[in-house]
Nucleic acid binder design. Structure first.
Lengths: 184, 184
DNA sequence: TATTTGCTTCTGTTTTTTCAGAAATTACGG
DNA sequence: CCGTAATTTCTGAAAAAACAGAAGCAAATA
């Protein structure tokens, strides 16, 4: 029996698909992800074809994409030749993997380009000062974000969860003006 | 003289445009944004048309979109009937505005839907337990992220910058196991 | 080793998005 | 107010992306 027959599961899967399109992810890909996320058992590609009414070829491509993000993996099912697929169900892990991959694909190349431009502009006397200054600042800004991310993603998950729950209260430790020094 | 004649400015603008497309933003829109970001003076729409070689109509739409994000604003230029436009140059403000707007447009509706589905599923005995459980967890997860964001965005900018620089070191205050209690 | 089964890659079609130009509307100056 | 300049909205064309089905390939079975 298909998950798509449950109106709520269906609503979830369709919405997830639309979400994807808004963030530059193919609709089919995010629908496949949503379906696997809700599924209680590993699904073979054919099953996904039937439920989402997609062509076999696209399901194949979509699964590859999701595996590239590391949020879907192939599993072997006893006595079945076909590959089966399951989605990551730990939502922290899922988010972290998505962010990591998008950084790798999109942000890192951007930082590399900005570094390059900033470097060249520092030499170039003929460049309009505004251009130099603003590209340099953009480079610094995105690099700073990148460094912050690299540090935070290294923290153990329970710490992250704790920090998240703490919300704005972390600010108490770093009231500006009084620089908090760690006693190493 | 056009900014597009500077190879570095041009590279920046073109790359910014491609970045946009990857995150679900129209290429023209992000190019317009990049051009305004680098520009030393407010630009009228015609100027943008000339430099980026876009149709006047699309520049109009693009500017409206950017104003919707709050990262471009109209300014009046002495003795010129035409509207002129400038981009936000404080990158923190820029980022915060983009995030705020995307949350409003895409995340908030998602949370609303998930709340709805989770609510209904708690009643529904016929629903597969996996479906109920996972939709509920997704709702909790995204809501938690949303709450965290709402708190953090309220912090003064200098505090944010400080926290960012602190990076993973904030973890020292919240070592798991030892729950940090605030003394209110 | 031939045959079936499952998976992927390729190709042409369909759908969606982007975009230019025309038409319409609004604001401004005389 | 009338005419003109500036901007926005509408519409159809062009470009890009998504997709289905076919063909190709690989692996397993017999």
């Amino acid at each position: 029996m298909s998950l798509l027959d449950h109106p709520d599961a269906k609503a979830f899967i369709l919405h997830w698909g639309e979400m994807g399109t808004q963030w530059g992810v193919n609709r089919s890909v995010s629908q496949i992800h949503a379906l696997l996320y809700l599924s209680s058992a590993p699904l073979p590609a054919d099953e996904i074809v039937d439920q989402l009414k997609l062509a076999r070829s696209n399901v194949s491509t979509g699964l590859k994409e999701l595996q590239g993000y590391g949020i879907v993996r192939r599993v072997h099912v006893e006595g079945d030749r076909r590959d089966h697929f399951v989605a990551e169900t730990d939502l922290w892990d899922m988010l972290m993997r998505i962010v990591a991959e998008r950084k790798r694909r999109e942000v890192d190349p951007t930082i590399a380009l900005l570094a390059d431009l900033a470097e060249r502009l520092k030499q170039d006397q003929s460049a309009p000062p505004q251009v130099r200054e603003r590209i340099v600042r953009m480079h610094e800004f995105i690099s700073t974000l990148g460094n912050w991310y690299e540090q935070v993603r290294g923290l153990p998950k329970p710490t992250l969860v704790l920090l998240m729950k703490l919300g704005g209260k972390v600010a108490r430790f770093v009231s500006p003006g009084k620089i908090t020094r760690s006693k190493d």
